[in-house]
Simulated assay, not measured.
Amino acid sequence: MILDKQAQTEIAGYVGRLLREAFGKGPQSIFVSINRPYVVLYLRNFLSPTEKILLQQDQVHSIQATRDLLMKSLIPEIKAYLLLLAGMNIREFYYDWGLHNQSGIMVGIESEEEHGQSFPEAAYTGKEELHREIQTISQQVEKPADELFSYLINERTLLVIRKGILISIEKELIRIGHEESLRLAKRSLEKSHLHNNGHFQRFLKTDVIDVFVDWDFHLDKSVIVFTLNPGQ
């Protein structure tokens, strides 16, 4: 099921207002992709004047930490709006920022009780090669995922889901309260492998504009989102 354009426009407008109120500046544009049980919001030109100064001073972790704090208060509001407008009961919520591109991503996944298991994976160009490359990166950073799935939400949005990637030391860091530090470290480390990786464009036979990654540590689950330019 793909929601109509009006609903997607309303979701984009609402989230844009929320971000503008919280950050002082909202994204220039938000593209909403819904293919239930998934909703993906791609944000473009989203960086406040203060953040631009911090970025010039290489204070990336300061920006990430501040945004994480703000998102904790915004996520419940976004979930409530998606339930009200689209009838989507979002159980999992992920987000990441491409500060170098002034971009961002938000991913919501409906509860399995509402929609059963995830819809069947469909074939797309380069799928097997992409899965192997992501497992190689997972092996280098933590360990290969126990389960890996991917879904082409639309021609511009590729969603990859990994389950079972945390190693023992990471689980212990989470247990003793260092979840945010672990998130910042993993974000930096994994994205150094995901970005500027020419393999992905070669496998997918399309231009990769952005790559995002986030985790739900308590579910031992991660999402990676590739934003694509199929015209290239």
Rank of each mutant, 00 (worst) to 15 (best):
E92T: 03
S138M: 10
L148V: 14
T66L: 09
S111R: 02
V40Q: 04
I169N: 10
V211T: 10
L228A: 01
H178K: 10
D4Y: 02
F217N: 07
D216N: 15
S62N: 12
I2K: 15
H178V: 01
T227Q: 13
H193N: 10
I134D: 05
V60I: 11
K127E: 10
T66S: 13
F226C: 01
L204F: 08
I63L: 07
K5C: 07
L99A: 06
D68W: 07
Y95G: 04
H199R: 15
Q117M: 08
E147M: 09
K52T: 08
L148E: 14
A145V: 12
S33Y: 03
D96K: 09
Y124S: 11
N101K: 10
S181A: 15
E180V: 07
F119W: 06
L204D: 10
Y95H: 12
D4C: 00
R67F: 02
A12S: 03
L69N: 12
K163A: 06
Q64L: 15
V40F: 06
E113C: 02
E51K: 04
H199F: 15
E110I: 00
R132M: 13
I174A: 01
E113A: 07
H178E: 05
N35F: 05
I174K: 02
R175S: 14
L83R: 11
I105L: 03
L219C: 06
E180C: 05
M71Y: 06
P37N: 00
L148H: 13
E172C: 00
Q64W: 07
D210Y: 05
E190A: 05
Y38H: 11
K186D: 01
R44I: 08
Q102T: 04
I176Q: 05
I2A: 12
L55E: 08
L173S: 08
G26A: 05
S73G: 13
S138H: 10
A86H: 05
Q117V: 11
V15H: 07
I63W: 04
D146P: 00
Q102N: 08
M71G: 00
K72P: 00
S111F: 01
Q117H: 13
I53A: 14
F46M: 15
E128S: 15
G126W: 02
I174T: 01
V32Q: 01
G98I: 05
S111Y: 04
T157M: 13
T136E: 14
Y14K: 07
D58A: 14
F200A: 09
Q56N: 14
E110W: 01
V32A: 03
V225F: 02
H100G: 10
N197E: 05
I161S: 07
G87M: 00
E190N: 06
Q6D: 10
I11T: 14
R187L: 04
S33V: 06
E77A: 10
H178Q: 09
N229I: 05
D68Q: 15
Q232K: 15
L228I: 04
E110R: 03
K221N: 13
T206Y: 02
L219T: 01
F200H: 11
L55T: 00
